[in-house]
Design a protein around this nucleic acid. Structure first.
Lengths: 214, 214
DNA sequence: TTGGATGCTTGATGTATGTCAAGACAAGCA
DNA sequence: TGCTTGTCTTGACATACATCAAGCATCCAA
């Protein structure tokens, strides 16, 4: 993309809207207009079952993009909430569509982003369907580590962006099982747990228990 | 879309490639070039874990479109196999991208298709993470019924496009549990089971046990 | 006709994780 | 200081589903 094109993209982005922890960016059924880029903090997306049961479907860290649900129906298909104080950029999707017609690499880029989301969701289905509690927690930690590393943060020392309850919800486990699993991994020396602070001692072995086993 | 545009789209579609049951259309790591529309039969997509454990990530019936994985990396991210003798249309993605620049509604349409895939995957995560065996099986049957209905087939009498093993794999259950669950639903009078032939007697009640409960 | 796959069902038993309950710890507040 | 509240941990027990095993039906090849 040349500089003029980057400028064009830059101009349609609405900057830095701050969000308090627990505040929603949008909810299921809201009209779809924009996607969002996380600038700081952490954001979770979740579905509510007919019975009010919550299923977290993903979470997003700085530099990541969310909101690709709801293009099909023009209505958002999930709820999006800040897990801590966060800032996001809003990117009006119609403007993206217009610009994509002028800048082919932009069109390609958004197809790629959505494709990556699909692949990540499929990995998550594998995790939920085939892995035991240890495998699920290990997979989450490795994923966090990788994403922290991408932002040039330490891949070994990380602060969980979410509560035990959110972790359990995301991984399809109860908070008790999550807690017990952290304790077990710590007793085995793979990680060091202090509340939300996690230190990964043995990346290799942690990765090795990510594999499916139920 | 006007007729000339429809013609343009029509011209890039490679017609009716027949696939035998068990044959692959592509595998993980193959170069990404095309997406596929199912014309007849049924197609499954699945991941292989490092240990060779298979996780089915979706299945596609006539009229449905698959292959949106791998746009990001240019390599396919899953395996795609025919579950019975099938035919598919191949649609070269680069041609789609070119045409999308000329026909804005086409661009919008593909964004919509991918968005719908993302929403369906999120629903599946909810199913895998929060529902018990009965809820998972019921959810699958309701989904099949709806998709059969969309093709103007009976929503109450359907032939399962897949084996018990595939069902178990897809739903994160063993074949024994799948079989027992079918038997239980039959004993309760909600469905009639005869091998792969399923008759839905009580749509309402079947739908009511789709809700999360674990 | 037999024998061997293959796919499905059903029963008996084991186990990972859910559920229920209690307590530890920290943060905020009177 | 004590009191409340929320988050997390740990233990005891219950249960849904996995595992192991057997049996049945269908199909196909020898």
């Amino acid at each position: 993309m040349d500089i003029k094109d980057i400028d064009k993209v830059d101009n349609i982005i609405k900057r830095s809207r701050p969000i308090q922890a627990g505040e929603h960016i949008y909810r299921t059924g809201d009209g779809f207009t924009s996607i969002f880029a996380v600038r700081s903090g952490s954001i979770k997306t979740y579905l509510l079952d007919d019975d009010g049961v919550e299923q977290m479907t993903g979470f997003y860290l700085p530099g990541e993009i969310l909101g690709f649900d709801g293009i099909g129906t023009e209505k958002h298909g999930c709820n999006v909430m800040a897990m801590e104080t966060s800032t996001v950029c809003e990117i009006p999707f119609e403007r993206i569509e217009e610009l994509s017609l002028q800048i082919p690499v932009l069109q390609r880029h958004f197809f790629q982003l959505m494709s990556q989301q699909i692949e990540a969701d499929h990995q998550m289905m594998l995790t939920l369907s085939k892995k035991n509690a240890e495998g699920r927690v290990a997979t989450l930690l490795i994923s966090l580590s990788r994403r922290f590393g991408r932002r040039n943060l330490s891949p070994n020392s990380l602060r969980l962006p979410m509560s035990r309850m959110d972790i359990g919800n995301f991984l399809g486990l109860t908070i008790e099982t999550v807690s017990r699993t952290f304790s077990r991994l710590q007793k085995e020396g793979l990680i060091k747990v202090d509340g939300r602070e996690i230190h990964i001692n043995d990346h290799e072995q942690l990765r090795s228990i990510c594999h499916a086993a139920k």
